[in-house]
Design a protein around this nucleic acid. Sequence first.
DNA 1: TAATTTAGCGAACGATCGTACGGTAAACGA
DNA 2: TCGTTTACCGTACGATCGTTCGCTAAATTA
Lengths: 204, 204
Amino acid sequence: MRKSADEARRTRDRIVGTAVLQASTEGLSGLTIGTLAESLGMSKAGVVGPFGSRSELQRATLLRAMDMFTEAVVTPSLAAPPGLPRLRSLIDSWCAYLADSPFPNGCFVTAASCELDGRPGELRTHLRDAVTRWRTFLHDQIATAQSAGDIPTTLTPDALVTTLTGIAMSANQEIQLLADPTAADRARTLMHALISAFSDKAEH
Amino acid sequence: MRKSADEARRTRDRIVGTAVLQASTEGLSGLTIGTLAESLGMSKAGVVGPFGSRSELQRATLLRAMDMFTEAVVTPSLAAPPGLPRLRSLIDSWCAYLADSPFPNGCFVTAASCELDGRPGELRTHLRDAVTRWRTFLHDQIATAQSAGDIPTTLTPDALVTTLTGIAMSANQEIQLLADPTAADRARTLMHALISAFSDKAEH
DNA sequence: TAATTTAGCGAACGATCGTACGGTAAACGA
DNA sequence: TCGTTTACCGTACGATCGTTCGCTAAATTA
């Protein structure tokens, strides 16, 4: 049996990775040590050991899931310059993330938001902060694009953040609950249209 | 002790009503007979008795919650004629429902959608059918309004359904997770703007 | 090489889960 | 008025929950 230090770290990663999968379908509150240990082929003590408690395991799982969202949606967009180019890139990677999610059951952040929004605690605070960061990032790209005159100012940045975020949530429901295979592509077209549609009027 | 037949029906209603409250914060999978019995001042057997099993109690709880959504959002709009008037009425009652929800933790349907979308079964089927009915109803009002020339056809009915539903979901997150008291009103304004905004161009 | 650290296992704990069974007492039908 | 129905309780069941132990054995350090 290998017991080196980085082998332990790899085990921890493997636990969190499997926990994300389980929590995606069962929810963070449905993340149980027993079933997690079974699907990992480990003992319950071995699963909870590296984290100390189930709460800490839940925390690590949520943080990992939010990192995965950032990695899939935000990181690719950083290659594009701020403003409209980055916003366009965001929309594309966002909808690709919705269509082919790293989670088995759609957007983990949206699911966690619905699950945790009424349960004060550390988990909720972590999630709230991450959602605020994401919305602020989106807001900044919109504001930059508007300042540069690249997209019309008919809708305020806040309104566009709400609308774009909403389209993503709605598309997530269409994909996951309603099993509509065209949803992600329609959402992408719709998002691109919404940030530029009003410019037709401006061009007149 | 009263044991009349309609007293039993009232007890059943009371159980389901409390179950909706508990499931709103803990989720349908977090609906446990023990805690439900305690908050009702009843025995576990007395709680699960009228339903036969926990699954049936969950089913009754979900159906009740969906009825409450319909009662709060759809029913008031039926007083207005189909098409744009009914659509405007829907937006108003919808956003009022988001701001002052009959559930302690925001839209039950959205939460249930995220919770159940990856769990095949009777609950998921019930929810999927109800969401499809709601989206179809919304679609019909939009299509009617467009056929009557009351709102522009720049966005297809499907696109508007996705966008309006999404704005509601996003506003729900802003209210419940982000504790933004202005969210419902901003969503209402945004929804009204989106179904008529493109008409500015048409008027030129 | 000898001593220490530590990753993970196996077993057991009290608590709570959903469910089942028999009893009680009030409401109902004859 | 008397037997039947039934709403609900109290209790107990096996299963599973999260957590805590002592143990083994490999990796690390001296």
